[in-house]
Simulated scan of single mutants.
Amino acid sequence: MKMKYDFILISTADWDNPFWTNKQHIAKRLADRGHRVLYVDSIGLRRPEVNKKDLKRITSKLKKYTQGILKKQENLWVWSPVVIPIHSNELVRKLNFKIMELSLNRFSNKLNFENTVLWIYNPLTQPLVGKLNEKITVYHCVDELSAQPGMPVKTLKEEETLLLKKVDIVYATSKSLYDSKKNINAQTFYSPNVADFSHFNKALSSNLEIPEELKSISGPIIGFIGAISSYKLNFSLIENIAKKNPDYNFVFIGQIGEGEPSTNIDQLKDLKNVRFLGAKSYDNLPSYLKRFDVCLLPNNLNEYTKNMFPMKFFEYLAAGKPVVLTPLEALKDYYNLCYIGEDAESFSNAIKRALNENDDKIINKRIQESKKHDWESRIDKMLESIDDNINKKKADK
């Protein structure tokens, strides 16, 4: 019988964020398999600003904090901590993590956690390692966080180095991240992002209803689903592509300013063929994908995206859709399944080729490739490495 674990998962994304990341997917699937999971919402990385979005988030945080731990499904609980968001100050960090340590130990005792695995996404929480009676510690490195805007860069890099030296296992989602982390921790595994294949493959179902707000749009829809932030997306490129192709509809689904509240989309607002539909529920995303003729990844090429493996790539492929993207390094192995554009001219030509595509074989290749990269097989491998590490520790005693 396989060992059942009690996971304390320290996330950088809140559980109720409508766009699920690897954090929520992994937590849910671990719980579905009978492991118990305490999911810890994001403590935030950047310092809040005086704006409506940040004030709303602070109010929401305080409200959730007063509710304690909430059971979201069988075997899965969520806690939303409140900290003083001055991460560059060492004394403040010590106070924050002492409070978190006491709270998490209290919740662990309440839930009768025994076989504890500490699974960390936020490097700033490295002081918690060794303080929660865990048998093993995992660092799941999914982004180069220090390359995001507004981050306490010096502190993040210092804390991540300490974390890498402390943890038992590191999972890195891009080859760039793998190469840099492996130099510090030999137990680093390349573990690229995957997709919820069965969910996004629903976009191919003839019974799936297309949303009303897309039914009224005539002509091709070139779509994007995800965070709409200026450090991720190349707005100048999008603007020039949209102007070059007035007969195409460019539809963006997602929260504007996710991770970067100062994001400004004014240059795109007045373009008649560009529409921002806001965030949609995870359950409804396949129905929007169904109406897309081409999917976009119009990313900037910078230090952040160099280390990023976009989860939405395999989600697009699961729907059988042609994908046009800027030359993201993490996706080099899959260039044969998509179209590449580096500027407005080549990107526009790539969209045209994608729209004129008439080959069931390439569609099927995309679907089959996405099928290989699903959450269940990925979690199998992760649990196997955890089992191996714990067994080795026992043998070494």
Rank of each mutant, 00 (worst) to 15 (best):
L145M: 13
F113Y: 15
D388M: 12
R106I: 01
N264V: 08
F19L: 14
K28D: 01
L383R: 05
D54I: 00
Q73R: 14
S262I: 06
K23R: 14
F313G: 04
N307R: 02
I253L: 15
Q126P: 01
I58P: 10
N273A: 07
N75A: 11
V170K: 01
I228N: 05
V50C: 11
Y190W: 09
K182C: 05
W77C: 04
D143P: 00
P149I: 05
N336R: 09
L76R: 08
I136L: 15
E134L: 04
P286E: 01
S230V: 01
N185S: 09
S230I: 05
L296W: 12
E212D: 15
A319N: 02
F224Q: 04
Q267S: 15
Y248N: 12
M311W: 04
K154T: 09
G278I: 13
W375M: 01
E134D: 09
V142M: 15
S88G: 07
I26A: 03
I26C: 12
V294Q: 10
Y121F: 15
P81C: 03
D41V: 04
L271R: 03
G219V: 09
L45M: 12
I367H: 08
S287H: 07
F19H: 13
T116W: 00
S103A: 15
K157V: 11
I340W: 08
I210Y: 01
I265E: 03
P310L: 00
S80G: 06
N185Q: 06
D374Q: 11
Q24G: 02
L124G: 07
K181Y: 13
I69M: 14
Q267D: 12
L91A: 13
L301Y: 02
A330S: 14
I136A: 12
N109Y: 03
D333H: 13
P327R: 07
L317H: 00
E209N: 12
I8A: 03
N193M: 01
I26S: 09
P85H: 01
W77L: 03
D270A: 04
M100A: 14
R291A: 15
N349M: 14
Q255K: 15
V251Y: 02
T59L: 14
K4I: 06
K352I: 05
S88A: 04
A172H: 08
L45H: 02
D266H: 13
C338Q: 05
T137P: 04
